[in-house]
């Protein structure tokens, strides 16, 4: 069945609905907001959406291999606060601090992965514990509130772009980073490691019996998720500045995004492009609601309705196909 499907469309199952919704939203934006009648408007949207989309890539790896990562929100906050404290306004520190941030992201992911796979603690609990630890540790270190400041060159990545590009004007650095990461993610998922990762989420035992290194793959997924949080934090820190609330609720928002992209919780199903499309859809929707004058308070309500509707829709489709 999946074979005929694959022949009919080149998209992974569950990808088409989110792309249709995304296309509708993007067209609707052009009708509602004057800024969206030029390419720059959409580029600005991409720039805003880039952190969530990058987080969605990381979360996709974890979810598709059968886990959860609830720690990304607090990891983003921790990274931004750490960056501010380490840089403390000193421009020359930017380079090594970025490397340190990436390292911290990878280490947090590694710890999540190792505890999940070696100590057999469910990833929900591990990353929940990590959430608490990170939340506490970073403010323990800074004494309750973010300290220090980000340097201008650090903030360039989130704020500035390449100027003087014909037709579209400025290409934000975040969009460039996003494009690079998307390409890497797609290539990775088409390769043997990526395919095995999906297989781990589908049937761990089968992969294990087939000689796959299940523990190593699942750990790798968490490391990639930690790295994605580090990159997202660098972009968000530049874009929005230092705040203790920068990562609040991001873990649930990114899981919403990934699920909206048709990726099934429990693993084994869904594509990384669709997960990112889910993130972009969510951001486009918020932009659209904003333009339509819907109050910011209702953002969560909309997010809640959408997430239930998307998953219920996917479930209905499944039953029909079986019948």
């Amino acid at each position: 069945m999946t074979r005929t499907q694959a022949r009919r469309t080149r998209f992974a199952p569950g990808t088409v609905p989110v792309l249709v919704v995304l296309a509708v939203l993007l067209v609707a934006l052009a009708f509602v907001g004057t800024a969206y009648q030029q390419p720059a408007g959409y580029l600005a949207l991409l720039k805003r959406a880039a952190p969530l989309m990058i987080l969605a890539i990381g979360q996709y790896f974890v979810i598709v291999s059968g886990g959860f990562d609830l720690s990304v929100g607090s990891l983003v906050t921790a990274e931004v606060v750490i960056a501010a404290r380490l840089i403390d306004g000193d421009d020359s520190a930017t380079g090594w601090v970025i490397l340190v941030l990436l390292l911290i992201g990878a280490v947090v992911g590694l710890v999540n992965g190792v505890i999940t796979t070696r100590l057999l603690v469910p990833s929900f609990i591990v990353t929940l514990g990590m959430l608490l630890v990170l939340d506490g540790a970073v403010f323990l270190w800074t004494g309750g509130a973010p300290r220090g400041a980000l340097s201008d060159s650090f903030r360039t990545i989130g704020r500035q772009g390449i100027d003087g590009v014909p037709v579209i004007g400025q290409v934000p650095w975040s969009v460039v980073v996003l494009a690079v990461l998307v390409t890497m993610a797609v290539v990775f998922m088409r390769g043997p490691t990526g395919r095995t990762l999906v297989a781990v989420g589908d049937n761990e035992t089968a992969v294990w019996l087939g000689g796959g290194r299940v523990e190593r793959l699942r750990t790798l997924a968490f490391v990639l998720s930690g790295l994605s949080a580090a990159v997202a934090a660098i972009l968000l820190g530049g874009f929005a500045g230092v705040s203790a609330q920068v990562g609040d609720g991001l873990e649930f928002r990114v899981i919403t995004a990934v699920v909206l992209g048709g990726v099934v919780l429990g693993g084994g199903r869904g594509s990384v492009v669709a997960a990112m499309a889910g993130a972009l859809t969510l951001e486009s929707l918020f932009s659209l609601l904003n333009l339509l004058g819907v109050s910011g308070g209702l953002e969560s309500t909309v997010q809640g309705v959408i997430i239930i509707a998307a998953v219920a829709y996917a479930a209905i489709d499944w039953r029909r196909k079986r019948a």
């Binding site: 699920v259 308070g297 309500t301 309705v305 239930i308 998953v311 219920a312 479930a315």
Partner: peptide
């Protein structure tokens, strides 16, 4: 509706949160 419990209750939580 056969929605995963995580998503279903997260969705309901978000709906209430938005209302609040």
């Amino acid at each position: 509706l056969k929605v995963n419990a995580f998503i279903a209750t997260l969705g309901v939580a978000l709906i209430i949160r938005g209302y609040l």
